[in-house]
């Protein structure tokens, strides 16, 4: 009787604690949002939201906070990264899951795992030592004024970093397509390639788009490596070899100046808030779409 009571009490305590942990974690996104929003409030006293998002004037010392250069910088770097990595991931995913012999597939998958593990800072170091000087030389060859620190450098380094992320999702998508669908298509007289082109890719299409979307959101928030190679000049870039200043880089770089003007802290939190909202909206929309597609 005593033991059973003891067990019941313990069960109750454990249950409550478990639910508390769960509640804590589920509140996290809201806490992040509310915390960052509260801190950005100061910025809204003197500026409208539209002004903050679409003005190009960034002069913290005179109270001008236009985030457009940073938002555009982020978009450019991310788009370059996606343009490079998306086709590579798409082709390689088909190669690994449909054509490659097991040993070859294993090698590529191991390479992806290693790429996924390399820390952001190490990518940054690599970019500074190899990509930036290389781009500098190309720019010189083309007669463009650039030291190599550019949105292109950011895009290249970033593309390598998101490849494992996107590719893993894509491989999963191709692997979950039932084998019978391939059998059916082959038995209709399609070649292997026609099967992939007309049947598998069409079946995978929603998933492929979602994978690219997740990749975009992931790349959008990547900080250290991009920060180290992108040049960090507050200006809307007008060419691939121009430096840019993405949002995460702004946040990471400007903490040092925090003491000087109270509005700067607020501005950084607003930058973080923009990032958070973009990432959450992207992820939420894609998840919702996937659920919709799966149902039908």
């Amino acid at each position: 009787m005593n033991i059973s009571n003891h067990r019941r009490t313990r069960d109750r305590v454990v249950t409550v604690l478990t639910y508390l942990a769960m509640a804590f974690v589920l509140l996290l996104p809201f806490a992040l949002f509310v915390g960052l929003a509260a801190k950005s409030e100061l910025l809204f006293r003197d500026n409208s939201l539209g002004h903050l998002l679409f003005s190009s004037q960034w002069k913290p010392s005179s109270g001008e906070f236009g985030f457009k250069p940073f938002i555009v910088g982020s978009l450019y770097v991310t788009l370059i990264a996606m343009l490079i990595s998306a086709p590579i991931c798409f082709l390689s995913a088909i190669h690994i899951t449909q054509y490659a012999p097991r040993k070859v597939a294993k090698i590529v998958v191991t390479a992806i795992d290693i790429l996924a593990g390399i820390p952001s800072v190490v990518y940054g170091v690599w970019g500074m030592v190899f990509v930036v000087p290389w781009l500098g030389r190309i720019a010189a060859g083309l007669g463009i004024q650039s030291n190599g620190y550019s949105i292109l450098a950011g895009g290249i380094v970033l593309s390598i970093m998101v490849i494992p992320f996107i590719l893993n999702i894509l491989m999963e998508i191709y692997r979950t397509i039932p084998k019978e669908l391939t059998e059916v298509s082959l038995s209709l007289g399609a070649t292997r390639w026609e099967t992939i082109r007309d049947v598998l890719n069409r079946k995978a299409l929603p998933g492929i788009l979602a994978a690219f979307g997740f990749g975009f959101a992931r790349a959008f928030g990547e900080t250290m490596a991009v920060l180290m190679v992108v040049g960090n000049v507050v200006k809307i870039p007008s060419g691939l070899f121009d430096p840019g200043y993405p949002l995460p880089a702004l946040i990471a770089n400007s903490f040092g100046e925090l003491g000087s003007i109270p509005e700067i802290e607020s501005a950084l939190m607003f930058a973080a808030l923009i990032l958070l909202v973009v990432v959450l909206v992207f992820n939420a929309t894609l998840r919702w779409l996937i659920i919709r597609v799966e149902k039908y």
């Binding site: 589920l26 992040l32 995460p248 946040i251 990471a252 973080a272 990032l275």
Partner: peptide, 16 residues
């Protein structure tokens, strides 16, 4: 919800 926070970049945690 977990899927949503799974994608939140680390810099945001830093700022927060």
């Amino acid at each position: 919800l977990l899927d949503l926070i799974w994608g939140v970049p680390s810099i945001i945690y830093g700022a927060f």
